[in-house]
C-alpha cells in the first residue's frame, strides 16, 4: 500500500489537486484492477465540522472515499486516522491510499504516527499544498502554522500561480525554499490540467 498524505492550509487546493492525482492514478490501473470489486485507490477525507463537503465532490467523481469528520479543528484525529488506514489495509489492501488532512493539521506529525503504527505500508510521502494567492497574507498572520506544515514535506506544490505574476511566484518560491530546501518543488495551477509529468514524478518518487 502506497500512501500519499496531503496537507496544506484551508482552501489551498488540496481537494482540487487530489482529483487530478486520482484521475492520473486510475488511468494507470490495469483492466483487472478496474474490474475488481476491491478498489485500487481509496481516499480518506479528514474534514472539520458536522458536514463534509469535499468528500461529496470526490464521491461524485466515482472515487472510493472514507470520511473522518473532526468536530474540532485542532483535533487532527491522529489515532482514528491510523485505525481507519489499518482497516482499509485489512479489508481492501489497495495499491494507493490518498489522505487529505484538515487545513489546520501538521502533516508530518500525522506521517510519524502512520509510519509508526500503520500496517502494510510500502511507501509514505507527504505532499503539502501552499496557496500562492494567499501566501503573503497567511505567512504574515500565521507564520508558525504555515512553516510547520511545509518544513518536513517531501513534495511541495505551490498552487494557484494563475493568481500571481511570474516575478511574484519566484518570490514565494524563494521563501518556501528557505523553509524547506530539500523537498521536490512544483509551481502549479490546479484550475488547469496539470502536466501529468509532475504527477508521474511525484508518484514514482513515492513508490
Amino acid at each position: 500500500m502506497n500512501v500519499l498524505l496531503f496537507g496544506g492550509f484551508l482552501g489551498s487546493g488540496k481537494t482540487s489537486i487530489i482529483l487530478q492525482v486520482a484521475r492520473y492514478l486510475v488511468k494507470g490501473f490495469s483492466k483487472q484492477q478496474l474490474e475488481s470489486d476491491k478498489p485500487s485507490l481509496v481516499i480518506i477525507e479528514n474534514e472539520v465540522g458536522e458536514t463534509g463537503i469535499d468528500d461529496k465532490i470526490l464521491k461524485a467523481e466515482g472515487l472510493n472515499v472514507r470520511e473522518l469528520i473532526a468536530g474540532c479543528i485542532c483535533c487532527t484525529l491522529n489515532a482514528e486516522l491510523t485505525v481507519c488506514l489499518n482497516e482499509i489495509q485489512e479489508e481492501l489492501s489497495p495499491q494507493w491510499v490518498i489522505i487529505e488532512t484538515t487545513g489546520m493539521a501538521f502533516p508530518h506529525t500525522i506521517a510519524e504516527t502512520i509510519a509508526k503504527y500503520g500496517k502494510g505500508i510500502d511507501s509514505l510521502k507527504t505532499i503539502v499544498v501552499a496557496d500562492a494567492e494567499r501566501w503573503d497574507e497567511l505567512s504574515t498572520i500565521m507564520p508558525d502554522l504555515i512553516e510547520e506544515q511545509i518544513v518536513k514535506a517531501n513534495i511541495i506544490l505551490l498552487n494557484k500561480i494563475d493568481c500571481l505574476e511570474p516575478e511574484q511566484v519566484c518570490g514565494v518560491k524563494e521563501s518556501i525554499r528557505r523553509i524547506n530546501p530539500s523537498a521536490l518543488f512544483y509551481a502549479i495551477s490546479a484550475h488547469d490540467e496539470v502536466n501529468p509529468q509532475i504527477w508521474r514524478t511525484a508518484v514514482t518518487y513515492c513508490e
Binding site: 472539520v48 474540532c72 485542532c74 489546520m104
Partner: peptide, 8 residues
Amino acid sequence: GPAIFSET
C-alpha cells in the same frame, strides 16, 4: 482556533 459553522 477558528469558528466553524457547518450544517446540512
